[in-house]
């Protein structure tokens, strides 16, 4: 069995995003997704700091330093882009206008709880940014994450141990090992990484899994 690498994980999510969706991507892994959206598909990317129609990072000589994304990288605007202020930007999020948000996560629980903003270590300054607004507000929330910690502990859990970002909101989880739907009956396996079996996945997962019908 070979787990998906980061690019393959991003590509797996990108393949599931239909044409016409307005999509917000969280920090880290999700920022790789736009590279894998098929060229013939129009998907509009939202940046929380006031952009719809965000394009890729430009070559150095074409940088406009007045244009940044949530990670504070310089970006470009695509044809059809628009700019707006923060209250409108989060109105789009909270008002359910964003079709999909993909966030990284420390843990996702079988009831759809997500923990991705704080590990409660005293030496870290807490910082939440837009994660709670996006989790609570987007029409759909997908998590994109490693299935286990570096020490092999499951991040797909019965109950989150880290502080919650939002309760009961995750619809789907993409990991390096599998794709899981969050259903009223808990996690349902939708897809497995090449060579992965249901039994092997279950042995690496602390939450109970069920097979998709």
């Amino acid at each position: 069995m070979k787990p998906l690498n980061r690019s393959e994980m991003a590509a797996r999510v990108a393949g599931d995003i239909p044409e016409g969706w307005y999509v917000n991507l969280g920090l880290g892994l999700p920022t790789l997704i736009p590279d894998y959206i098929p060229k013939d598909r129009e998907v509009v990317f939202h940046s929380e700091n006031g952009v719809l129609g965000m394009g890729p990072v430009p070559p150095k000589h074409e940088i406009d330093t007045w244009l940044i994304n949530a990670t504070k990288q310089n970006i470009t605007l695509l044809k059809g882009a628009s700019l707006f202020h923060h209250a409108d930007s989060f109105g789009m999020i909270r008002g359910g206008h964003i079709d999909l948000c993909v966030l990284g996560a420390y843990e996702v629980a079988q009831n759809g709880d997500i923990a991705n903003w704080s590990t409660s270590q005293n030496d870290v300054i807490p910082a939440v940014g837009g994660a709670m607004d996006l989790s609570a507000g987007a029409k759909r929330l997908w998590a994109l994450m490693e299935h286990t910690t570096k020490d092999g502990l499951s991040r797909i859990v019965e109950r989150c141990s880290y502080p919650l970002t939002a309760a009961g909101v995750v619809k789907r989880v993409y990991t390096n090992l599998a794709v899981l739907d969050v259903t009223p009956r808990g996690f349902e396996v939708v897809d497995l990484a090449p060579g992965m079996t249901f039994e092997a996945l279950q042995s690496l997962t602390s939450a109970q899994l069920s097979r998709s019908e």
């Binding site: 923060h86 930007s89 909270r94 507000g137 502080p163 919650l164």
Partner: peptide, 29 residues
Amino acid sequence: PQGTLAERIRAAGCGIPAFYTPTAAGTEL
């Protein structure tokens, strides 16, 4: 939370003393 921050400021500018938001419900914040 960032959207709550923006909205709290907007509300102040618009004469709205408080509002309800789903953001942060069920969390430490």
